[in-house]
């Protein structure tokens, strides 16, 4: 009896380690979501993963691991075995960790499975604000220096990048930057009049705009968006934005670098299929995200281009702790 038990257990253990990619996945896969339950990363991952599970023929158990602006989750996955059984489900900001002094790891320690979608930033204002478009806002700031309250979500967040872009293109704005811990709370404050202007991702603001609870000033893209065709792109006001746009936050699934290629291929294939699901596509469209669904070399190229552009933008705006140069990130 005893020998049987030992035999069975060792067979199980050996079986698991020797199985490799041929019958991957032979056990549950852990999906570590970098952000809290109910956030947009959480929603996106929980809605694409069931479709990917079908294609993969395995189970992905998702858990939220918050804290340290997502660095806790990233370091956790980086500390697991590179066997494809732990996925990192995250957003764009780890690419800024190094220059912001938030950690010494970023997506260069990971292999992208799929960059699912990209968001578009939009500048929105309280309906009572004394201006109706981007040009009006800039004129107001010039006439009333230090009076306009602009929402922010901490260094490295989308608003800080958009603000850095405006400062670089138009010269330094004299505004009050009021920090919130996410674009949801900040947009709530905007509707209550605690802040006047907020750079946010289109999907978070779209319903508020439709209801007239906030007014759009400009889309931070090179062309108008299908969802809000009447809102002008910021490049209509100033050509200089073409250098930095299109830019936007994104969502992606990653595994630790060193994961066997066939496992990566299998996962990439599953998530690509999952991202094509009509229900998921509709969800992303409703929230104003542009589908990407890229992987492999294309995804790597996208990541490094994103990192170059954004880190240097923040560096030039004086918002970084360390220069991108220190980490071998070349100026674009």
């Amino acid at each position: 009896m005893k020998r049987f038990v030992i035999g069975a257990v060792s067979a199980l253990v050996l079986g698991a380690s020797a199985a490799g990619a041929a019958d991957y996945p032979s056990k549950e896969i852990q999906g570590v979501i970098q952000w809290g339950a109910g956030g947009s990363t959480d929603t996106v991952m929980r809605s694409v993963t069931p479709h990917a599970e079908e294609a993969l023929g395995g189970t992905v158990v998702m858990q939220n691991m918050t804290g340290g602006v997502g660095a806790i989750a990233l370091n956790h996955v980086a500390g697991q075995a590179a066997d494809g059984y732990t996925l990192l489900m995250g957003a764009e900001n780890p690419l800024l960790y190094k220059v912001m002094g938030l950690g010494d790891k970023d997506y260069s320690d990971f292999t992208p499975i799929s960059i699912l979608a990209r968001g578009t930033p939009i500048l929105v204002a309280n309906p009572d604000a004394p201006f109706d478009d981007y040009a009006g806002m800039m004129a107001y700031i010039n006439d009333n220096p230090g009076e306009l309250r602009m929402g922010a979500t901490g260094p490295g967040g989308l608003p800080s990048v958009v603000t850095a872009m405006i400062n670089t293109v138009e010269g330094k704005m004299d505004v009050i930057s009021v920090p919130y811990d996410g674009d949801g709370p900040a947009l709530t404050a905007l509707q209550g009049g605690a802040i006047d202007v907020m750079p946010a991702v289109l999907g978070a603001a779209i319903e508020g705009i439709r209801a007239g609870k906030m007014k759009p000033l400009a889309i931070f893209d090179v062309a108008a968006n299908d969802k809000l065709p009447e809102v002008p792109p910021v490049t209509d006001f100033n050509d200089a934005y073409n250098t930095y746009l299109p830019w936007g936050p994104f969502f992606g699934v990653f595994v630790k670098k060193g994961t066997p290629d066939d496992v990566v291929a299998k996962l990439a294939d599953a998530y690509a299929k999952g991202a094509e699901n009509p229900a998921f596509v509709e969800l992303m469209d409703n929230r104003g995200f542009s589908m990407m669904g890229i992987s492999g070399a294309e995804a790597e190229a996208f990541l490094s281009k994103w990192q170059q552009g954004t880190t240097w933008l923040l560096q030039d705006a004086g918002l970084t702790k360390a220069s991108p140069e220190d980490f071998g990130i070349a100026r674009p």
């Binding site: 199980l12 253990v13 698991a16 032979s26 549950e28």
Partner: peptide, 11 residues
Amino acid sequence: VPEAEVIQMFR
């Protein structure tokens, strides 16, 4: 304990 493998086996 190879929990994940056991659960997968049952599954």
